[in-house]
Computed example of a mutant assay.
Amino acid sequence: MASKIKYNLDFDSLTSKELKLLEKASEAIKKFVSKSDKINQVNYKTRDAHVTAYSTLKGTFVANKNFEEHPIFPKQELDCLIRISNAHMKLVSQKRTIPAYGFSVKISDDNQTIANFPMVNFPLFPINNVSRFLKIFITINRFFAGNILQKFWNLIKIIKNFILVSPAFFHPSFIAEVSKFLKKRNNFILSFDYHSIGVYRLGNDLVKLKLVPKNVRTKVVEKHIDHSIQNYFKENEYELELMVQYCYDLKKQPVNQLNKMWKKSDFVLIGTIRITELIDKNNQWVENLSFNPFENIEELQPVGRIQKLRDETYKASFTTRKNNDL
């Protein structure tokens, strides 16, 4: 059997230019979040992304007894909280929305976070260039937070930067996944597989994560997503398998090329999530939570250059929301 690639700090390294851009991104986030209540016409400061909450689920994570890395988890059974959302930076209508869903998982033990896994229903990320991604991210935040003139200039910058990164959208792997996604874009939100965008440590190994629901219908019954979730739980149980895919070869399973699917690596079951309770999606306690994956225990930390950006950006959003609520 091939040896697993081990974690090293080089996977996460950012240049001085990228770090300066990350500082600008954090400032852009703070400005957006500080204005987010007015932008979204609500009485609280919202997140910088995945603002629209569809549902919050409470349950139990049960580690697979036969999994070789089981000792990473302090107990076989741990508490689990899931926030289901839309990826957009602003509140969006449930009737007219792109089906880009978030599935943020918090695994904890007596309120102590073991892992935050922000996951989405599309397995790839099109932009590998860190500087270019940060420039796009900065201008999008400035676009929504700015006045009419600022919106105009930032829109020009957004279009320019997207043109520059557009070749990454045409990677065969990315095109194939888009084609698959379009075929199931109208499926029931709980029936999707959910994926980690980037890589995580599992002990000292490198993995991608996937959540696979068990025996869930794909047909949408209700037009409103939150109602469809509520009605599903009136008659059905919901269980998902948490699986990992190991990195053995950086050409076949690249860490910092996020627009390419990993090949020649089978998924391994590491645990099961069983939902026990549906929580009010407007519960302010949940909305005040952070799902920053850098709050994970050391053995489950994110890996990669794009992933590295999450630490500062999540903190900037969370701190601004928290300070504005005081």
Rank of each mutant, 00 (worst) to 15 (best):
M1G: 14
S3T: 12
I5C: 10
I5W: 07
K6W: 07
Y7C: 07
S13E: 15
S13T: 14
T15H: 09
K17C: 03
L19Q: 15
L22I: 13
K31G: 10
F32T: 06
V33W: 10
K35N: 14
N40L: 03
K45P: 00
A49K: 10
V51M: 06
Y54P: 02
S55N: 09
N64W: 01
F67V: 06
P71Y: 11
I72T: 04
I72A: 03
L78A: 01
D79E: 13
D79P: 01
C80K: 03
S85F: 03
K90D: 06
K90M: 12
T97I: 02
S104F: 15
S104T: 09
S108P: 02
N111V: 00
T113I: 15
I114D: 01
A115S: 11
N116E: 01
N116I: 00
P118G: 02
P123N: 05
V130P: 00
S131D: 10
I136F: 07
F137L: 12
F137T: 05
F137I: 01
F137D: 13
I138A: 04
I138D: 02
T139F: 07
T139V: 07
F144E: 08
A145R: 05
G146I: 02
G146M: 03
K151I: 04
I158L: 09
I163F: 08
S166Y: 08
A168K: 01
A168D: 14
F169R: 04
F170G: 00
H171M: 08
P172K: 14
I175R: 12
A176Y: 11
K183G: 03
F188L: 07
Y194S: 03
G198S: 12
G198T: 11
G203M: 12
N204C: 09
D205F: 09
D205Y: 12
V221H: 11
K223M: 09
D226H: 14
H227L: 15
I229E: 04
N231V: 06
E235T: 14
N236A: 07
M243Q: 15
Q245L: 08
D249S: 11
K252R: 14
N256M: 08
W262S: 06
W262C: 06
K263F: 07
K263Y: 08
D266R: 09
I270M: 10
I273M: 01
R274D: 04
T276C: 05
I279N: 09
W285T: 13
N288G: 12
F291M: 10
N292V: 07
R305W: 00
I306L: 15
Q307E: 15
K308S: 12
K308A: 11
K315V: 12
S317C: 14
T319A: 13
T319V: 12
N324G: 15
N324K: 13
D325A: 15
